[in-house]
């Protein structure tokens, strides 16, 4: 069955590629939309070039640094807000107001005072921060009262309860956050390159568009999607590692 499914998936990919090739050859000039048969070799060539890997490394570095900042800040603030009674009620309207504010509004403000590399990291951090913070808050809210009572009845102190009860409860929510933020982080690291010319993949794509290397640009975009898939896969793997007990719980409930 699974073999059959994978076969169909492969057929879907091939079908899409063939359809793209035919449509593009029939309707577009290769100056605007090059066929896959031109893009693919170009992508392979790029994979052998140092400048592609440097750019990828820079983009990923910005994404990872921003992500780490977001995780640290989100966890610390989430636990602080979630575990001090009343603090959530006072802050929730402010958090609700700030969350939907798109982080890229920061670009025009920050570009006056910071350099583009720092802004890119900050963009990533701010966007991911909200996701982490709200997931932590959901998680803290879901801490089971019976579990807390159990821990208290065995005289576990506040810190021990956070370590043994609250943290493991929040962990699955952090796993979800991690899965969500890796693609957000990558997207914003790339956007930084596109909008402000921060060195990296985004900038490389934009400059190849400006200099008219159309096929090269398409190849870069194709590869960018590949990087996205790899990063996403990595995040899912990390989540499963982190939550082996939890994923298994879900499987048992489903069965």
């Amino acid at each position: 069955m699974s073999r059959y499914r994978h076969g169909l998936g492969l057929a879907g990919l091939l079908g899409a590629a063939v359809a793209y090739e035919l449509v593009v050859r029939a309707l577009f000039s290769p100056l605007h939309v090059p066929p896959l048969t031109a893009i693919a070799p170009e992508a392979v060539r790029l994979l052998g070039e140092a400048r592609f890997w440097t750019a990828t490394g820079r983009t990923l570095l910005a994404a990872v640094v921003g992500l780490a900042i977001a995780l640290a800040a989100g966890v610390v603030l989430g636990f602080a807000i979630g575990s001090v009674p009343g603090l959530l009620r006072v802050t929730s309207s402010t958090l609700d107001f700030l969350r939907p504010v798109p982080s890229i509004v920061l670009i025009p403000v920050l570009i006056l005072v910071l350099d583009v590399k720092e802004i890119t990291v900050l963009l990533v951090a701010v966007s991911c921060f909200w996701i982490v913070l709200f997931q932590v808050l959901y998680g803290v809210r879901e801490v089971d009262q019976v579990a807390v009572d159990t821990a208290r009845s065995f005289r576990l102190g506040r810190l021990a309860r956070i370590v043994h009860v609250t943290w493991p409860t929040v962990l699955p929510y952090l796993g979800t956050a991690l899965r969500l933020i890796v693609s957000v982080a990558l997207a914003l690291a790339l956007t930084g390159g596109l909008v402000m010319g921060t060195a990296g993949l985004g900038e490389m794509i934009w400059s190849s568009q400006e200099s008219g290397e159309v096929t090269g640009m398409y190849a870069l975009v194709l590869l960018t999607g590949g990087i996205g898939v790899a990063v996403d896969l990595l995040a899912r793997l990390a989540e499963r590692r982190l939550l082996h007990w939890h994923v298994a719980t879900r499987r048992e409930v489903a069965a």
Partner: peptide, 10 residues
């Protein structure tokens, strides 16, 4: 509620 009193992660 044994299911909630036992820690699922341990």
């Amino acid at each position: 509620e044994y299911g909630r009193s036992l820690f699922a992660w341990k």
